[in-house]
């Protein structure tokens, strides 16, 4: 007889059970129960946001090179646990071929974003030629705490595709796992926990989106929300909930299996542009240096 594993949630680098003590059963494609999963509550969202906020300063101020190293480490760790992910993907209804492709694509995508960590700034930033004696430059800075609602279509690749550009850019994340296929999300949390990612940078909760999303979307300490392939209804209600503190709401409709479903645009959506002015003193008057 198989042991029915209980999947816990991932907050502040720990694996607590949900505050509410509730679980729900996740079934395989044939309808057989495969796991018990936490049915997280508003309080878990609160805790996750708190952890993400705490982690934001240090993570965004960490050197970009170092963030790249950590993302690459995540890819390495994921590579070491391919088998487990393939098994879970199959359990949740994938064919073995698709599962293999999904894990390989996921690893590639993490490596791809690992490479971006210390490069996107140069593309998004600029030196601006103003019409006065000032040095003026614009840089990209992380938006802050980003709430991500998982794409229901894919268990792992969607998660990786949504998560990586957000943290590559220096943001921290509260991630609501796909309701029906949350296994990979929690197993991925185990990957994160064993890579060098600091606690709180990514927090993953499982449960029912309609219970958690409004809390996350209304939370005044969340700076942005990220939806992927969500229904119009969810998009609209999320946008309405986001108004009170003017969260940036990013909605994409991508097929994450596509090779082109990646790029700097996914990073820049969670960046703010900061422009700095400073006077330039023309020492010595009118003489040119040429």
């Amino acid at each position: 007889m198989n042991i029915l594993k209980t999947y816990k949630i991932y907050i502040a680098g720990q694996f607590p059970r949900t505050e509410s003590g509730r679980t729900y059963v996740v079934n395989d494609a044939a309808g057989n129960p495969i796991a018990n999963v936490c049915q997280s509550s508003k309080k878990d969202i609160r805790n996750a946001v708190q952890a993400a906020r705490k982690a934001f300063g240090p993570w965004s101020e960490r050197s970009a090179f170092n963030r790249g190293q950590i993302l690459y480490r995540i890819a390495e760790m994921l590579g070491g646990r391919k088998a487990q992910f393939i098994e879970e993907l199959i359990q949740q209804g994938q064919t073995i071929e698709r599962a293999q492709i999904e894990i390989e694509t996921s690893i590639d995508r993490i490596v791809y974003y690992a490479g971006w960590c210390d490069k996107f700034q140069q593309i998004l930033s600029s030196v601006n030629p103003v019409n006065s004696s000032h040095f003026n430059f614009s840089v990209a800075e992380a938006t802050g705490v980003v709430g991500v609602l998982a794409d229901e279509q894919t268990g792992l690749l969607g998660l990786v595709s949504q998560l990586m550009p957000v943290i590559a850019g220096g943001n921290t994340v509260v991630f609501i796992a796909a309701e029906k296929s949350p296994l990979c999300a929690i197993t991925f949390a185990e990957v994160l926990a064993t890579s060098d990612l600091p606690a709180g940078v990514v927090n993953i909760v499982t449960g029912f989106a309609n219970e958690m999303l409004p809390t996350l979307a209304e939370h005044m300490d969340v700076n942005a929300l990220y939806l992927s392939n969500a229904s119009n209804e969810i998009v609209k209600s999320t946008q309405l909930s986001a108004v009170d503190n003017l969260k940036r709401v990013v909605v994409v409709n991508e097929d994450w299996n596509q090779e082109k479903a990646q790029g700097i645009a996914f990073i820049s959506s969670f960046q703010e542009i900061k422009t700095t002015w400073h006077p330039i003193e023309q020492i010595g008057g009118a003489t040119s240096s040429y």
Partner: peptide, 11 residues
């Protein structure tokens, strides 16, 4: 102590 001066501001 003499204050520092920003020439662009003076201009």
């Amino acid at each position: 102590k003499s204050p520092t001066i920003d020439k662009v501001g003076v201009e």
